[in-house]
């Protein structure tokens, strides 16, 4: 009995010092926790230095004929799944750029326009903060990347993207033999259960940088052009460095016709559109 009593009083003595220790530790750690939390959550706006390139795109809806060349070029460049009618009916065919019908109702009746929609490469991407494993990230030049080996396939980023521009591999992608043999060796294949997205053909950026370095010169405008831009027969898509005031894409994105999709959400897309006239 006395042993029990002793045991209890001992614990009581200890608990005072333990409490003191935890208090001290909490007071000590609080500023760090707070600073870290603020850095993580609060100001999402990065500081982009003047020298850094910030890749952006402007799509002229007046020029676009909705021919879907960009869609085909993108699928071939980026080894996208072929898909079949059943998968299409379930909305499971992955196309990083799609031509989206948008119906606008007005007093004079409804009017449909067709918009090519790649990933908007937001400056404050809603998909990045929700990823539990940091498998999706914003690279210094403004492209939203995806780390395939780290993605756990929870589809939270896909859900939180307001543009529905991220895609999930519902099953192992497959191709007929000739297509499988003709894949782009620069693009890693995706597999069952992970999320993928438009990366502005960053493998082309990689190639362009290597070439420029080999030729001992700086990257010039036109060195790096994504497949969709190159394939557009109507030249409706402009691409380049938004941080360079002289580039075509900077100039067009300042046009009075320019607007960004769901701009009110504050996601700061780097893809803008020129409205139809």
């Amino acid at each position: 009995m006395s042993n029990h009593e002793k045991g209890v009083s001992l614990t009581d003595n200890h608990s005072t010092t333990r409490r003191g220790f935890f208090k001290g530790a909490a007071v000590f750690l609080l500023p760090f926790v707070f600073r870290r939390a603020r850095a993580e959550v609060a100001p999402r706006k990065r500081e982009v230095k003047s020298g850094t390139r910030l890749w952006g795109m402007v799509i002229d809806l007046d020029r676009c004929t909705a021919c879907q060349s960009c869609v085909i070029a993108c699928s071939v460049e980026n080894n996208q799944m072929l898909g079949n009618p059943q998968e299409a009916a379930m909305g499971r065919v992955i196309r990083w750029i799609r031509v989206q019908p948008v119906v606008k109702e007005s007093a004079g009746g409804s009017r449909q326009s067709l918009m090519p929609m790649p990933c908007m490469q937001c400056e404050d991407p809603p998909c990045i903060k929700v990823c539990p494993t940091a498998a999706t990230f914003l690279d210094p030049e403004g492209i939203v990347g995806q780390v395939y080996p780290r993605c756990i396939g929870c589809r939270y980023c896909v859900n939180s993207c307001p543009y529905t521009a991220k895609f999930f591999n519902w099953e192992t992608p497959s191709w007929p033999k000739p297509m499988a043999e003709a894949q782009n060796p620069d693009v890693s294949p995706r597999y069952k259960g992970i999320v993928e997205k438009c990366l502005f053909c960053h493998q082309r950026l990689q190639r362009a940088k290597e070439k420029a370095a080999f030729e001992k010169r700086a990257l010039a405008e036109g060195d790096y052009i994504p497949a969709c831009v190159l394939a557009c027969p109507a030249k409706a898509i402009a691409f380049g460095d938004l941080n360079d005031p002289g580039s075509e894409v900077s100039r067009l994105s300042q046009s009075p016709r320019a607007y960004r999709l769901l701009d009110e959400l504050g996601t700061e897309p780097k893809v803008s559109y020129l409205r139809e006239e």
Partner: peptide, 10 residues
């Protein structure tokens, strides 16, 4: 991966 590479804003 959730424990190995935790991303605390999620």
């Amino acid at each position: 991966n959730v424990i190995l590479y935790p991303h605390f804003t999620s």
